[in-house]
Amino acid sequence: MRRRNFLRGAVIGTSAAAFGGSLWRGAAYAAPAQPGTGPYGALGAADANGIQLPNGFTSRVIARSGQTVPGTSHSWHNAPDGGAVYADGSGWIYVSNSEIPLIGGASAVKFDSSGTVTGAYSILSGTNTNCAGGATPWNTWLSCEEVSRGYVYETDPWGAKAAVRRDAMGRFKHEAAACDPVRKTIYLTEDESDGCFYRFTPATWGDLSSGTLEVMVGGTETSGPVTWAVVPDIDGSPTTRSQVAGAKKFNGGEGCHYSSGICYFTSKGDNRVWAYDAAAATIDLVYDDSLVSGTAPLTGVDNVTVTSGSARDIFVAEDGGNMEICVITQDGVIAPFLRINGQSGSEITGPAFTPDGSRLYFSSQRGTSGSTLGGGITYEVTGPFRS
């Protein structure tokens, strides 16, 4: 019997005390998000790209792995994964990792104010299985290696400066990173079945060459207070996740995004979306597929992003599942926002919004072919996103 089915009957309808309050919303809430009518309405029929979208939204293909990005001379990388968008004058830049062993790296696509592609280029090469990462407030991209004793590389989205390996951020199976500019620290996820949740505090904010790596400590509860403890040996031997007694474990850490005092992150092994309230030093569950009444709309949780406006909608991409990006509102409603058809052998990666919130970029890592070599497709969706 699947864990989801076993727990659903035992849990739905119990008190808030069983799972904690909704610390991620800042108000009492009886349980993690439940299916409902989303803020964008029902999905329409698939468009020419095979994507089902709500009314008012359109999609286009930006790039395909192994092919020249239209309007440029740059060949788009294989297995596109984590991504971010950076303002560039009146235009913007979308950065994307390559989750390929030994020759991974990252590339960028540059757009003008109308959304026309004006350039594409590599910003990192020769690294190993670059999965997710995160943007910094000083406009660099942290590209993370998802391998044992992997590194974090700080890269330049404009491609003008050489990438720098940031050893002080620790060696472990890095997944994603999210910067907290208020507390001047960076949260990090670890893609292991007994992985941890970390924070790296630079000695000088904006300079990642030195600092302190800590791991979250806090028992086995899914909500409540947590603390932090220094990782004694950051080079990963022994593994960073095994060095601190009481380090809190997360089953396959994936995406990570900071917004308005909350760091949202996901764990794929148990299909959960978490929230760390940085001011209160507490965690809570935003979503758990085993606690859903009825059919769970989101499985295979992966990369996550949050809209920049007051709505603070949480967008979570699926690794498998129904190939959907689901939206979770701050009122605790979860619903599909889009679905990609005909690509069941792939996963959705790298969701990121433009600074004005009008366009969403993401990739299907293996596309219609299901292959990491030449299968990836990077998309843009435009429409009336909530601000």
Results as ranks from 00 to 15, higher is better:
P157N: 02
P157L: 07
W158K: 13
G159P: 01
A160M: 11
A160E: 13
K161C: 01
K161G: 02
K161P: 01
K161N: 15
K161D: 12
A162Q: 13
A163V: 10
A163C: 06
A163L: 06
V164L: 08
R165W: 08
R165T: 15
R166T: 09
R166V: 09
R166S: 01
R166C: 07
R166M: 13
D167A: 14
A168P: 07
A168Q: 04
A168W: 07
M169Q: 11
M169G: 04
G170W: 09
G170T: 10
G170I: 09
G170L: 08
G170A: 04
R171W: 10
F172N: 01
F172H: 09
F172R: 00
K173P: 04
H174D: 07
H174C: 05
H174N: 11
E175A: 02
E175R: 02
A176M: 06
A176L: 02
A176F: 02
A176P: 02
A177K: 00
A178H: 07
A178W: 05
A178Y: 05
C179I: 14
D180M: 10
D180Q: 09
D180I: 11
P181I: 06
P181G: 00
P181L: 04
V182I: 14
V182F: 01
V182P: 00
V182T: 13
R183S: 11
K184M: 10
K184N: 08
K184D: 01
K184F: 03
T185D: 03
T185M: 05
I186S: 00
Y187G: 03
Y187V: 09
L188A: 01
L188H: 03
L188N: 01
L188P: 05
T189Y: 06
T189A: 03
E190G: 03
E190R: 02
E190A: 04
E190M: 05
E190W: 07
E190N: 02
D191A: 03
D191R: 06
E192T: 15
E192W: 13
E192N: 13
S193W: 14
S193T: 15
S193M: 13
S193K: 12
S193G: 11
D194K: 11
D194C: 03
G195N: 09
G195T: 12
G195H: 08
G195E: 10
C196P: 02
C196F: 05
C196T: 13
C196V: 14
C196M: 13
C196Q: 10
F197K: 05
F197G: 03
Y198V: 12
Y198R: 09
Y198W: 14
R199H: 14
F200H: 01
F200R: 02
F200C: 00
F200A: 00
F200L: 04
F200P: 08
F200Q: 02
T201P: 08
T201I: 14
T201D: 07
P202Q: 01
P202E: 05
P202A: 00
A203D: 15
A203R: 06
A203S: 15
A203I: 08
A203N: 15
T204I: 12
W205R: 02
W205I: 08
G206V: 13
G206Y: 14
D207L: 08
L208D: 11
L208Q: 03
S209M: 07
S209D: 14
S210H: 00
G211Q: 11
G211F: 10
G211E: 12
T212S: 01
E214K: 09
E214F: 04
E214C: 04
